[in-house]
Design a protein around this nucleic acid. Structure first.
Lengths: 195, 195
DNA sequence: TATTTTAACTAATGATATTAGTTAAATCAA
DNA sequence: TTGATTTAACTAATATCATTAGTTAAAATA
């Protein structure tokens, strides 16, 4: 009958297609039906590559976290102190802007406690710890500061994405002001590096 | 045949049931099928009360925003300055903890630009503006500060809900430290009220 | 009391994820 | 090179949804 070409899909290709789908139509449109259609195969064939929709969601989450981490790590090269935090923050927010669906998937793993998901996320936490080390925070203060930075970055990105900021007011400017205020507050105005 | 008792449901009852469902099983389990089962009616009957699943999501979002606003406004009574911001912040986070599903619904309206949704959200923005007025920010600074506070509160709540904070470190303490740092940063350490 | 509105219903449709079992292409070992 | 195995596609079938259309009886109203 019809030829069954055995396309030979690999997981990366599938995840990229899922990412495009997420960014273009939103995460809720990343269905096995839509994904299969875009790939030119039938929905059940996808089960050869991952364990159903939850499996896809998990893999897409890790895929997205890794991508986000790359962008942050890139931005952190060759900078330090406030400059580094600002660069990494802008990279974070820009990633969420360019890849709203993938960013959303990042926080949508079926089980956030999953070891693989945790491991991917840990790299981002570690990076945050490192760029905040310039502020010489003592003991637990550094950990609280990491939580604060992540809260700001995720909250800002999420609210921007959902149209939460209605005022006619430059968004990038807001981010810089918010980050600077937070850093000034935790450092008592004494970062350890030259700015 | 079987009696058709005409229960006489009103929208509030339905939204409360939907809220319980959201908090107990997660927002993705707030289906017309589940909701109808909990209410003792058949799914199509729900269409007499709202316009399908998108209609329910919109009404649940507004319902949640109103509830959240009430809690924040309550917390703001009789306090000012840093104390007010902290009280409102804790109310916000506690609401998200107690009602994770309703909180999630708050940001899940099908159309965030919808007038009714905007109107509900505006009350929260206004409240934020008022409690930050103690810091005497000039011009646009106040608006940037509101964005910062909202980013922190939403980011913190969302990340806590999704298991984003793994460290063995007191969460309430983190929130207080983060808010205080942010306020110190935007105020240059000069809130206008007695603390 | 008669009419209208309301809130439930049944029946049917289409989209979805998922499972089971099948088949042929690709890979690999002898 | 050939035979066996693995892999990646498939068809068919099922269950769960949301949704629409059309119906009916209870409740409200005139």
């Amino acid at each position: 009958m019809s030829p069954r070409p055995k396309i030979g899909l690999d997981l990366t290709t599938i995840l990229e297609a899922a990412g495009v789908l997420a960014d273009q139509l939103g995460i809720q449109e990343v269905t096995l039906a839509n994904l299969a259609k875009n790939l030119g195969i039938r929905p059940p064939s996808l089960y050869n590559h991952f364990d159903g929709l939850p499996g896809l969601r998990k893999k897409l989450a890790i895929y997205g976290i890794d991508k986000l981490y790359s962008r942050m790590a890139d931005a952190a090269i060759g900078v330090s102190g406030t400059e580094a935090v600002l660069a990494v923050s802008q990279a974070y927010v820009n990633f969420a802007r360019e890849h709203p669906g993938i960013y959303e998937a990042t926080l949508l793993a079926p089980d956030p406690e999953d070891v693989d998901v945790q491991q991917a996320g840990a790299k981002i936490v570690d990076l945050s710890v490192r760029i905040l080390q310039a502020y010489r925070l003592e003991g637990e203060s550094a950990l609280h500061a990491v939580r604060g930075l992540r809260s700001i970055l995720h909250g800002f990105s999420s609210l921007e994405q959902r149209g939460g900021f209605k005022m006619a007011l430059d968004l990038d400017e807001s981010l810089v002001i918010i980050i600077k205020a937070f850093l000034a507050g935790i450092a008592g105005d004494s970062p350890t590096t030259t700015d």
